[in-house]
Amino acid sequence: TYQLINLQELLNILVDNLGSCERILKTPMPLAYAIHLKQLLLVYCCLLPLQVVDTLGWWTGFMVAVVSFTVFGVEAIGLEIENPFGYDDNDLPLDAICNTIKHNIEDLITTQSNAARSLQDSIAN
């Protein structure tokens, strides 16, 4: 009875976590946010040389290129991790995780079955 109650609690937690993952998957980034972010980054990168040219001189182009690469890279990473579920290279390996969990549960069931048989055999003898 204790194991069934514990199993039911774990199943409830699993269902709650599944619901959380589905909410993450089905909640898209608002289009206005994405457009505004790209416009803001573009304006920043276009105005940055005007701010640093007195200080950096000839290095302005190189430094602005490095900063722009970094800022647009972070924005691209944000878009990539917006949807972590699927079969792209950067998505979570859910199939491998689920297979590992399945094998662990099968091992536990087998071990408990063998232990129960051993206990029954020792009681019978």
Rank of each mutant, 00 (worst) to 15 (best):
Y87R: 12
V43F: 09
L18T: 09
Q39G: 07
E75A: 15
I101W: 03
T110M: 00
E106L: 13
L108D: 06
D91P: 06
Q112E: 08
V52F: 00
N114D: 11
L7M: 09
D88E: 13
Y44Q: 05
G61M: 01
D54E: 11
P28S: 15
G19C: 10
T60Y: 02
V71N: 03
P49K: 02
I101K: 06
G78I: 02
Y33T: 13
I24D: 04
V53C: 02
C21K: 08
I35C: 00
I101N: 09
G73D: 01
E80Y: 05
K38C: 08
F62L: 13
L47H: 03
I105R: 00
T70D: 02
N17T: 09
D16I: 15
N12M: 10
F69K: 05
I24F: 01
S118M: 13
S122P: 01
F85G: 04
I5N: 09
G78T: 05
A34T: 12
N90H: 12
T70V: 09
Q120N: 11
E9H: 11
A34C: 04
Y44H: 10
G57V: 05
N17C: 11
N83I: 06
V52H: 00
T100A: 11
A115D: 01
T60R: 04
G57F: 00
N6Y: 05
E82T: 13
Y87I: 10
M29W: 14
L94T: 09
L37Q: 08
Q39N: 10
F72Q: 03
M63A: 14
K38M: 11
E82P: 00
L48P: 07
L47C: 08
T27N: 11
D54F: 10
A76E: 05
S68P: 02
L56S: 02
W58Q: 05
D95M: 07
I101M: 11
I123Q: 03
L11R: 06
Q112M: 08
T55W: 00
L119R: 13
R117F: 10
L10D: 12
R23L: 14
S68K: 03
V71A: 04
V66W: 02
H36Y: 08
D121W: 04
Y2V: 13
I24L: 15
C21I: 06
F69S: 13
T27D: 07
L37Y: 02
L11I: 08
L50N: 03
I13T: 14
I109D: 00
T111D: 03
V74F: 10
Y44G: 04
Q3M: 09
G73N: 15
R117E: 15
V67F: 02
Y44I: 13
T110S: 03
A115N: 13
L47P: 01
C46M: 10
D89Q: 06
V67S: 00
C46A: 09
I123Y: 05
L31R: 10
T70Q: 02
P84G: 04
P84C: 06
L11G: 00
Q51C: 12
D91I: 07
D95W: 01
V66G: 00
N12K: 12
C46I: 14
I97T: 07
F85H: 04
L10H: 13
Q3N: 05
S68M: 06
A34P: 01
I97V: 14
Q8G: 12
T60V: 04
A32R: 07
L37H: 11
